[in-house]
């Protein structure tokens, strides 16, 4: 069986700066993979390449046997709306919209009707334990509450892959753990694969396995260290 999502020899430069120098990674259906490594090693760049936000300069990114690196920007952004969810450290909720409007947004973009989208969004806020925040705007929420809403928004379309870049990096230990626990629980329920970028070993410990990047390549000392579920 081929992997759900894979990168093969992925290379990406920013001008003269090499960020990824040939990375291989395969993610199976429903699998949670942590990507760790020191600052600047290329974790976020790898996540952006795998999610089709950035195009690799060389190498391939394959999703369901399709080389998405060859797709147009429009086709990739459609894929991100239907099959992928993204979750960053902060700042992805639209400040002018309420929580329920924020969570409904991906459904509206995917063509759902307004009433339907709102009611599904409200269910998702409930699932993440923040039903009471439905009519609040992000500015009135704590960091943890915002990340719960952002998680609901990232998962509301029931994506096949969730890309999470330091999703709990700005939260205190306990809040971070609760939010991470919710992300992992819901991803397992949906069978959604997760690419989880983090610095923290305690966060990587939620994943099924871990890959370590160093200076834009896989660190062989981090290979084979992962233990299967």
């Amino acid at each position: 069986m081929s992997a759900l999502l894979s990168g093969t020899n992925v290379v990406r430069n920013y001008g003269a700066t090499p960020a990824l120098r040939g990375v291989d990674l395969a993610v199976d259906e429903g699998e949670i993979v942590a990507v760790t490594g020191p600052s600047g090693c290329g974790k976020s760049t790898l996540l952006h390449c795998l999610a089709g936000i950035l195009r690799p300069d060389a190498g391939t990114v394959t999703y369901r046997d399709q080389n998405i690196g060859l797709w147009s920007e429009a086709a990739r952004s459609r894929l991100r709306r239907t099959d992928f969810g993204v979750l960053f450290q902060f700042g992805q909720l639209v400040p002018e919209l309420t929580a329920v409007e924020n969570v409904a947004l991906p459904l509206l973009l995917a063509g759902s009707g307004r009433r339907e989208a709102r009611s599904v969004a409200a269910e998702w806020l409930d699932r993440l334990g923040v039903a009471e925040l439905a009519e609040q705007r992000p500015g009135a929420m704590s960091g943890g509450q915002q990340q719960r809403c952002a998680t609901a928004r990232a998962l509301v379309t029931q994506p096949r892959v969730l890309f999470a870049d330091e999703p709990t990096g700005a939260l205190d230990v306990l809040t971070g753990e609760q939010v991470l626990g919710e992300i992992v629980r819901v991803a397992r329920e949906l069978g959604t694969a997760v690419v989880l970028v983090t610095h923290a070993a305690s966060v990587a410990a939620y994943a099924d396995r871990e890959i370590v990047l160093r200076d834009g390549v896989l660190d062989p000392t981090g290979l084979g260290l992962g233990v299967a579920r």
């Binding site: 992992v184 305690s202 992962g226």
Partner: peptide, 20 residues
């Protein structure tokens, strides 16, 4: 260090699963 790190990570994963 590599071997010890692997043993630590794997124990950490067990504990995280247990408490979750």
């Amino acid at each position: 260090l590599v071997a010890q790190r692997a043993a630590h990570m794997s124990r950490m994963r067990e504990l995280t699963t247990a408490k979750s």
